[in-house]
Amino acid sequence: MTTATQDVQKEAAPLFGKKEKKVLVDPFWDNNPITLQVLGICSALAITSQLRPTLVMCVALTTVVAGSNVVISMIRNYIPSKIRIIVMLAVVSTLVTLVDQLLKAYSFDMSKKLSVFVGLIITNCIVLGRAEAFAMANKPWPSLLDGIGNGLGYSIILVLVATCREILGAGKLLGFQIIPESMYQAGYVDFGLMILPPGAFIFLGLIIWVQKQSSKQFEV
């Protein structure tokens, strides 16, 4: 397990200074949880064949990461280190179950479409990873920013993949026809492979490649 960074923030520090901005924005691209840390791949592959469920999933995950980060950070000084992982899991699974219940009550069709993947947020490494690596060593406010940042970083990649897959695989975006009928009459056929899991692998691979090229981060 990674040891956490020190709690460096001072009492008088501004509410949203440079450091906070870095915590929030870094995971968007430079330290993206999916492409650089390669976490949370399972759901990135599974629910990105259409954009709409992807968006719901992104909101759900961002809420859970942010929420769990804040809660863990608030009780971080009381958590006995021997059982910290179990405590984190308890907090995370409570939040995930809450989100799942809310979806079932207010957006039933969506919760059917996302099926098990909402529940699987519990095992999404981003959530536990951020709790262990950041929230355990930082105050609630930066932890919240870190959670939102990582959630959004995850969302950016998922939305990218889902947009490409839905347009190429079904000719639609959010259910609206994007590729005009005339193209189909001219012989265009939807690229069915994109809807299937390989489509997600291909796009995710491409994004990771672009990402690593641009940030010059290579594994040795």
Binding site: Y78, P80, I83, V87, A90, V91, T94, T97, L102
Partner: peptide, 22 residues
């Protein structure tokens, strides 16, 4: 003993929240 008490409190809080929501 502290570890047990902490674990117990966490479980209690989580289950109350979930039972309420459900």
């Amino acid at each position: 003993s502290q570890v047990f008490i902490f674990a117990f409190i966490i479980c209690l809080v989580c289950s109350v929240i979930l039972a309420g929501a459900s």
